[in-house]
Every structure is written in structure tokens, then in C-alpha cells.
């Protein structure tokens, strides 16, 4: 669409800008401010430069948390994206079943995150939880408070339960926008089910999948409440992700300087990954156009 050049548009943006500045810029400045100072109390502080950043980058506990975080995010993406596409493909398209399935599938998305943690805590406990109890009855010594493997598997299962619906709904919505004529033409062309998926459905899903993957990456990278309630980050620190490390440091230990530096590093990692992903996608689409010319 051709847009009109008009700087008065700033007036339309202004209210939004003031609010976001209040809730984003001022706090961010505070963080930057703390990250270069050592604060003892309200009146005593020293300028430290990049010291906190160096400390944080070299902290083995944090390095481990970063790795864990990536491992977690990539794992859930690898499971949720294909699963979500699959579910979108088998969701009923009309009638009361469509509405019913839609509501049921959406449900996990609207449950407060700590309640999600509670639900899975109750569900997986060995004594009172259906899943925990069943696994033990089947002879598997399932225990998320002592076995890191069990804790990891459970958290991933919980995340899949919680967030696959987002991908599924995005894809379902994307699939709905494909005109019937495409399917009809494909039948006349004798395309197999796979070919229909590969050449008609998947291309139409690219845009929503980009959105889905970005949202999922960002949210999984910020995950806090669910594992906090379910495992408390344990056993040991095997399920302590970045947000939890940060919260412990900032609120629990009141280490203002280091946690501020850590915050910025954390934020930058997310920005960087998102940016790389986004430009990669954009370049792929641009390549298509360059090939043309």
C-alpha cells in the first residue's frame, strides 16, 4: 500500500508513545543505570563500568542457565511446531464440533501461568497425581523432585500442553484462508495428500508460522511461573531457567548491579536471536524476488 508522507501522524502515535515510554523506557534506563554502578545504599554508589557485565558473562552458573534455556526453547519449538501444524490439519472445520474443539484447544492458553504450574504439580505428584501415580504403578520410579530427567521431561510436556494450541490456532486460521478452488485444482491435478500439504497448505502457513515461531521462542525464553511452581528450578538447578535466575538475584539477593547487567545481556540475547531469525526469513523471501529479476 502506498502510504502518505505526513508527520502529523506523530500526534496519533503520541499517547501510545508516552505510555510505552513510561512502562518501558524509564525502567530500562534504570536498569542501564544500575548495570554500571555498585549500589550499597541510597546514597553510596560507585561507577563500575563494564565490570558487572564481565562478571556475569564469566559466571558458570549463568552460562549453564543460558545453555539450559536454549536447549529448552529449541526442544519445545521442535515439538510444538510440527505438532501444532498436525493438529490444525485434523481439526474439524465446520459444525458444532469445530466450535467445541476450538474452545477446548484454546483453553490452556487462558489459564494463568502459575495455575498451569499448579495443575501439572497436582497431576504429576507421585501420591495424588494421576500421571505420577500411574507411572509409578507401571513400575517406573517417576520422581520430579529427585530425577533431573523426569523434571525436564515433565516441564517440556507441560509446555507442549500449554503452548501447542497457539501454533495450532495460528495454523488453523491460516488454513482457513485457502480458497476451496486450490483443493479442487489439486484433486484435478491428481496431487497426493502430501503434495497438497507441501505445495498448497505449507506455503500458505509460512506467514503464520513465522509469527508462531517468533512468539514461541520469545515466550519460552522468558518462561518463569510454570517451572517455578512445578519444580522450583530443581532438582538442584537442573530446571532453573534465565528468568528464575534473574528473579532470584534481583529480588531474593538484592544484587542490583549484577542483576541489571544480567538483565541487559538477557534482553540482548532475545533481541539478537529474534533479529537473526527475522532477517533470515526476510532474506529467503527476498532471494525469491532477486531470482526473478
Amino acid at each position: 500500500m502506498n502510504k502518505v508522507y505526513n508527520n502529523r501522524a506523530w500526534w496519533l502515535i503520541l499517547p501510545m508513545l508516552l505510555l510505552v515510554a513510561f512502562s518501558a523506557v524509564i525502567p530500562l534506563m534504570t536498569v542501564v543505570n544500575y548495570s554500571v554502578q555498585d549500589v550499597f545504599d541510597a546514597n553510596t554508589r560507585f561507577f563500575t563500568g563494564t565490570e558487572w557485565f564481565e562478571v556475569m558473562l564469566n559466571d558458570p552458573a549463568l552460562q549453564a542457565a543460558v545453555l539450559r534455556q536454549f536447549a529448552f526453547s529449541l526442544t519445545v519449538l521442535a515439538i510444538e511446531v510440527p505438532l501444532g501444524i498436525g493438529i490444525a490439519l485434523i481439526m474439524p472445520k465446520k459444525g458444532w464440533q469445530a466450535s467445541a474443539v476450538l474452545i477446548l484447544v484454546t483453553m490452556p492458553l487462558l489459564i494463568p501461568w502459575n495455575v498451569v504450574g499448579s495443575i501439572w504439580q497436582i497431576f504429576t505428584r507421585g501420591d495424588i497425581g494421576l500421571m505420577g501415580w500411574s507411572l509409578r504403578e507401571l513400575g517406573y520410579g517417576y520422581n520430579i523432585t529427585s530425577s533431573p530427567v523426569d523434571a525436564w521431561a515433565t516441564i517440556i510436556l507441560m509446555d507442549v500442553w500449554h503452548w501447542t494450541p497457539l501454533i495450532a490456532l495460528l495454523c488453523f486460521s491460516g488454513l482457513r484462508s485457502i480458497p476451496d478452488a486450490y483443493y479442487q485444482a489439486a484433486r484435478i491435478d491428481r496431487a497426493s495428500k502430501w503434495a497438497v500439504f507441501r505445495y498448497i497448505q505449507l506455503p500458505k502457513l509460512t506467514n503464520v508460522l513465522v509469527i508462531g515461531v517468533l512468539l514461541r521462542f520469545m515466550h519460552s525464553f522468558m518462561i518463569y511461573a510454570e517451572p517455578f511452581v512445578l519444580t522450583g528450578g530443581g532438582p538442584g538447578s537442573s530446571t532453573t531457567f534465565l528468568s528464575q535466575s534473574l528473579t532470584t538475584m534481583a529480588i531474593g539477593q538484592q544484587d542490583l548491579g549484577p542483576s541489571a547487567a544480567f538483565s541487559l545481556i538477557y534482553f540482548l540475547i532475545i533481541l539478537l536471536v529474534t533479529w537473526v531469525f527475522y532477517t533470515a526469513i526476510m532474506n529467503m523471501q527476498k532471494d525469491d524476488k532477486i531470482q526473478e529479476a
Binding site: 480458497p179 478452488a181 486450490y182 479442487q184 485444482a185 484433486r187 484435478i188 491435478d189 491428481r190 505445495y199 498448497i200 506455503p203
Partner: peptide, 17 residues
Amino acid sequence: PPEARNIAQVFQFPVIY
């Protein structure tokens, strides 16, 4: 079904892959 008939169809809006 359409795939078993020896016909082709061109639609109102171009269908291309």
C-alpha cells in the same frame, strides 16, 4: 472423483502453486 475423470478445470481466480 475428479482425479479419475479425464478432465481439467480452470477456475475463476487463477490457481497456481
